[in-house]
Design a binder for these strands. Structure first.
Length: 424
RNA sequence: GUGAGCAUAGCUCAGUCGGUUAGAGCGUCGGAUUGUGGUUCCGAAGGUCGUCGGUUCGAUCCCGACUGUUCACCCCA
């Protein structure tokens, strides 16, 4: 086998796909309760969209995007995240004119050319949620509540950390204070922080080096630098979380990797995923819609990483046992197969899951298959049954057997309705 | 982009201090008297021991390169 999947691109085999379905169903159900609607957007966009939204100097844009020039000479990019596309669609269709506050979610693959490791792939999947057109802090709390509800309903425990990054009014003052502080300490910092200090000063606060962290104990706090409006906003967000009884901690060192965030940011963290601690993260991005050429409307959103949720569920080992269901038609001989085939089709029309073996296998083998596939019933149809005009219906669970009539072609519909009723 | 570990059957892994036909468990298929599953017992299929080169009388084992993969840094969901 010399053609294999690409590095960082993974097949999701049927067993694992079951977990994906469970996550998606749970999320869709929770999103419904909060009246979010699904939007589906393309995977491929013009490169400029991401450069403008995520930030020209972020790692994502600088070195992780799958970008290429298409046949028309235009630079296109496989989306590295979902928000930019949703906002582009929002602006392009003037959705704010249909309903002033839009609550949207989207599911799908994202692409980043990173070195793969646990919980990190080149094609990965996110559930991405956005509220566009409203800036009330209660919404920030509601969005966090929704994210944590998805996790709770999946049986996963995570911790919620929140922060406020301020707004264009108060952030410059903080930046200045931080730069001053870092300038003072610069010789004591690690190499990475030296680099970050110049490129994106906020990022140093997130450094994992314990020696750096010990210096940052006395670093200026963004929260102390918030302007009156931002401080008030943050206060109401916290009050909202408290009133919903959602536990959280404030982490004034938390930073987001995308440049567009303002005010509230948050992360849902776990310690069970190795180096990848965030299973979900998001925040407010009040200037972004305008920055992309749309109206000056606020927004907030978050994304959850599907692969990380799957990993957590797999660790839980509390995975549900397979459910017995459906019917295996064990037909022996060509004539029986012909009749069984017609029965299967009629039953499937009635919503019954029907399995059959066409390989002329022994009854024993077909019984084995029925058991292996967790069928609830097996219908035995051989020469004996054909001559009697009665098939044997076996309940695989109780091992009880009974005979049921073999229908003439004209009454198959009626017969299948009765049998469907009986075995479902 | 940087670093470290790993690479033997479909899966999880033994193993050979370098020596004729490389093993186990699980899984798959078959059998245990004619047409009745899950348990048990018996059997079978399935491997160029990642690739290429080197050392050697001889390499799956030692050495090197390459490729793949895993984890971590970085970054991020």
């Amino acid at each position: 086998m010399n053609i294999t999947a690409l590095k960082g691109f993974k097949d999701i085999l049927p067993e694992e796909a079951l977990l994906w379905q469970r996550i998606e169903m749970t999320a869709r159900e929770v999103f419904r309760r909060f009246a979010f609607k699904e939007i589906k957007v393309p995977i491929l966009e013009k490169t400029a969209l991401f450069a403008r939204s995520i930030g020209e100097t972020t790692d994502i844009v600088e070195k992780e995007m799958y970008s290429f020039v298409d046949r028309n000479g235009e630079s296109l990019t496989m989306r590295p995240e979902g928000t930019a596309s949703v906002l582009r669609a929002f602006i392009e269709h003037s959705l704010q004119n249909q309903q002033p506050v839009q609550k949207l979610f989207t599911l799908g693959p994202m692409f980043r050319h990173e070195r793969p490791q646990k919980g990190r792939l080149r094609q990965f999947h996110q559930m991405s949620v956005e509220v566009l057109g409203a800036n009330q802090p209660e919404l920030d709390a509601e969005v966090m509540a929704m994210a944590s509800m998805v996790l709770t309903e999946l049986g996963l425990t995570v911790s919620l950390e929140i922060n406020s990054l301020g707004c264009p009014k108060c952030r410059p003052a903080f930046n200045e204070a931080l730069l001053l502080f870092l300038d003072d300490k610069k010789d004591a910092l690690c190499e990475d922080c030296q680099r970050r200090r110049l490129k994106n000063p906020l990022r140093v606060l997130d450094c994992k080096s314990s020696s750096c962290q010990s210096h940052y104990q006395s670093a200026p706090s963004i929260i102390a630098h918030l302007c009156a409006e931002c401080a008030d906003h943050f206060r109401v967000v916290q009050a909202g979380l408290t009133s919903m009884a959602i536990p959280y901690t404030i982490n004034s060192f938390m930073v987001r990797g995308l440049d567009y965030y303002t005010r509230t940011t948050f992360e849902l963290l776990t310690d069970s995923l190795g180096a990848q601690s965030a299973v979900g993260a998001g925040g407010r991005y009040d200037g972004l819609i305008k920055q992309l050429g749309g109206p000056d409307l606020p927004g907030i959103g978050f994304a959850m990483g599907m692969e990380r949720l799957v990993l957590m569920l797999q660790q839980q080992s509390s995975n549900l046992e397979p459910v017995q269901s459906g019917l295996f038609v064990a037909a022996l001989g060509e004539r029986a197969r012909g009749i069984g085939f017609a029965m299967a089709q009629a039953l499937r029309c009635r919503g019954v899951q029907v399995l059959m073996d066409y390989a002329d296998s022994s009854l024993k083998s077909q019984m084995k298959q029925s058991g292996k596939q967790n069928c609830r019933h097996t219908l035995i149809l051989g020469d004996e049954e054909l001559s009697k005009g009665e098939a044997i219906l076996r309940d695989m669970n109780t091992k009880g057997q009974e005979t049921i009539p073999i229908p003439l072609p004209g009454v198959l519909g009626e017969w299948s309705a009765m049998l469907a009723e009986k075995i479902q």
